[in-house]
Design a protein around this nucleic acid. Structure first.
Lengths: 212, 212
DNA sequence: ACCTGAACACCGTTCAAGT
DNA sequence: ACCTGAACACCGTTCAAGT
C-alpha cells in the first residue's frame, strides 16, 4: 500500500520517566481490551484514552496516529512469539527431525490458539496496516531459528536447506492461521494439528538424504 | 466479533431495472479501484460515489453501510474462486493423487497470484469484517469439491478421507496465503510452489492405502 | 423506481494552556 | 517532561425533495 508508506508507524517517543512508562502500559492494555471487545473499526482514540485514564492528547504524545498505536501493539506480540520460537528451536538442536517438527508446530499452534480472542483481534487489526517491515523482521528471526535447528538434525541432511526451511515455516505458519480461521471444534482441531505433524514429517523425510 | 453481528452485511436491494444494474457495477468497480490504490482506511463513501458517478445517497440504497459494500465485493471474488476450484476438481476426477495435488495447488496459487494487487487489497479489506459466514460458505464448497476428487483417485484410498481432505486444503490455502504475504522474489516463489506440491504428495502417499 | 446532496453526529488530530 | 481538553476538519449516514 503505497499510500501509507509516507506516514511513519514508529512511536513518537520512548518514556524517560516512570510515570510515562506506566501511561504507555495503560494505553496498550486499553487498546488490546477494546480491540478484543469491539474490533478495529470501533476502536476510537477517545475510548482508548478514557479507558487508559489519560487524555487523548497524551496518547498522541506517544503515537503519531491511531495506526501507529495498533502497529506497536502487534509488534509487541510478534516479538514475544519470535522469542518463543527461538527458545523451542534451541531446545531441539541436535534432535531428530520428527521431534523438531512436533516441537515447532506445537509452539506455534499453542501461541496462536491459547488466547484465541487476542490472536483474532490482532490478525484483524493489523490487516490494513503497512506491516511488511514487521512481517519481514519476524520472518527473518523465525527463519534463522528454524534453519539452525534443521541444520543440526541428528538423522538427516538437506541438500537445499534454505528452500526446505522456507517451505516448512510457510506451511506451518500458513496452515495454523488457516486452521484458526476455520473455527474448528476442538476434536477436529486436534486431529488437524496431528495431521500437520504427519505431513511435515513425510515431507522432510522425502527430501532428506539420511546422514550423520 | 460480537459487535458487528447485529448489523446485517447483506445488500439492501437487488436491481430491478437495467439502469440500476449498471449503477451497481460502477459502484463495485470504483470500490475495487480505490481499495487497490489507497486501502480500506482511505476508502470513503464519498470517493466511491464520486468515482462511480453517482451520489452517496445512491450507494446507500444498495448497501446499508460501507462494510456491506466491501463484504459484497469480497463475496464476488470468493464466488469466482470457488467456481474455479470446482472446475479443477471435476477435471481431475479419477486421476492419480499426484496429479490432483499439482492441479489444486496450481489453481489456488494462480488465482491468488495472478492479480496480486487485488488479492492483497481484498485480504486487507475483509480482515475487520465479521466474515465467518463468507469463509464457511467458501470452505464448504471447496471441501465438497476436493473431497469428491480425492475419493475418486485412481491410485489410492483414504481411511479417514474427511480428515485428510481438511488437512490438505488447510495447508494449501494457508501456505499460499503465507507465501503471498512474504513478498517472495519470483524464483523463490516458484521453488516454494514446487515444494508445496512435493510436501502434499509425500503426505497423501504416507496416509493412503494403495488400492483400486 | 431510482437518484440527489445538504445536514447531522461523531471521530482523528492539533495545540495553547496547564502542572 | 508530561498532561489536558476544547476546537477543527472530515467521514459515515440520513432523509426530504426531486425525476
Amino acid at each position: 500500500m503505497a499510500s501509507t508508506a509516507a506516514r511513519s508507524l514508529n512511536p513518537r517517543k520512548t518514556p524517560r520517566q516512570a510515570r510515562s512508562a506506566f501511561t504507555l502500559d495503560a494505553i496498550f492494555e486499553a487498546t488490546i481490551q477494546l480491540l478484543v471487545a469491539d474490533g478495529m473499526h470501533r476502536l476510537t482514540t477517545t475510548k482508548v484514552a478514557e479507558r487508559a485514564g489519560v487524555s487523548v492528547g497524551t496518547m498522541y504524545q506517544y503515537f503519531p496516529h491511531k495506526e501507529a498505536l495498533v502497529y506497536a501493539l502487534n509488534e509487541r506480540y510478534l516479538e514475544a512469539l519470535a522469542a518463543r520460537i527461538e527458545t523451542t528451536c534451541q531446545a531441539c538442536q541436535g534432535r531428530p527431525i520428527a521431534e523438531m517438527v512436533e516441537a515447532l508446530i506445537d509452539t506455534y499452534w499453542r501461541a496462536k490458539m491459547e488466547r484465541a480472542d487476542v490472536t483474532r483481534a490482532l490478525y484483524r487489526s493489523v490487516a490494513e496496516l503497512d506491516n511488511q517491515a514487521m512481517i519481514d523482521a519476524f520472518a527473518s528471526r523465525a527463519n534463522a531459528a528454524t534453519s539452525a535447528m534443521l541444520a543440526s538434525a541428528s538423522d538427516a541432511r538437506f541438500t537445499d536447506l534454505r528452500n526446505v526451511n522456507l517451505t516448512l515455516v510457510t506451511v506451518v505458519f500458513g496452515a495454523v492461521r488457516n486452521a484458526f480461521e476455520r473455527n474448528l471444534r476442538p476434536t477436529e482441531a486436534r486431529k488437524l494439528r496431528r495431521q500437520l505433524v504427519v505431513m511435515c514429517r513425510a515431507y522432510l523425510e522425502s527430501v532428506a538424504r539420511p546422514s550423520a
